[in-house]
Amino acid sequence: MELLAQVLVGGVLLGGLYALMALGLALVWGVLNIVNLSHGALIMLGAYATYYLFTGTGLDPFAALPITAIVLFVIGWLIQRGILNLVIRGPMFNTLLITFGIEVILTYLAQLLFSADFRAINPPYAGNNFRVLGITIPLMQVLAFAIAIGLTVAMWLFLLHTRVGRGIRAASQNLVAARLYGVNPRSIYALTFGIGSALAGVAGGLYGTVSQINPYIGGPLTAKSFAIAIIGGLENPLGVIVGGLVLGIVESLTALYAGSTYRDVASFGVLILVLILRPTGLLGRTT
């Protein structure tokens, strides 16, 4: 019983981080209608940015996250303005191919620059735990969870209650009307892709504090983000929290009962099930 509780808590904490990973992908998908296959590579870059800020300057990894976010925002903004904008009206197949190409390029650039070695972001307090009701909770995972959920909720509030947030939602709901009412699609798209990349970057930094990183972590993380976005739906940013928690818990339970080799089998099994049963996502496209 205690083991099950321990595993469930671990799943929930992981799920929060998954939610933040998927948020940027879902946002870009909903507004630009692009499934960004390079999303995981951006998460990977965010992890390395945080790692080098931490090891290079001694900055606390959590304090480094805002800088990581800015760096990734700029990278995302440039990718959208320089590359994706050229195919924005093209068929979805083109944007899939191009973002896949970007993923490959970023992955191998990272291998060249950072080497294929495993790295971990280990501040002095990384080993701290605390115990609640007999369950051991690692401090780093709690911090990552809290920041991830906090950012996701903040993003939801931003989209709901600010002028720019409304403009982003307007562009995703009705592009013609948005253009007629003063929304410039070029700048909204670049901004949205920048925000999506910044969120990926922060998620990557947090991932690096709870797990090891290497240049190849991007691919599987893109796939998981995709699964979560499908489960949660694209319309409501809080949907990714549901999707993330579902995936986190399913993965942890699978690791407990079937062995950790089957982790990914379970998470993509969930994806396939959701696509069959509820093709619009569990939460649908509602606000």
Binding site: R166, R169, N174, V176, A177, A178, Y181, E235, R285, T286
Partner: peptide, 22 residues
């Protein structure tokens, strides 16, 4: 525009605020 082209999944008030976007 023809066919209204409202932001269907926004509230009435949000639609009006979109008019004041600039």
């Amino acid at each position: 525009p023809e066919g209204r082209q409202l932001f269907d999944r926004m509230s009435v008030e949000e639609n009006l605020r979109m008019g004041a976007y600039r």
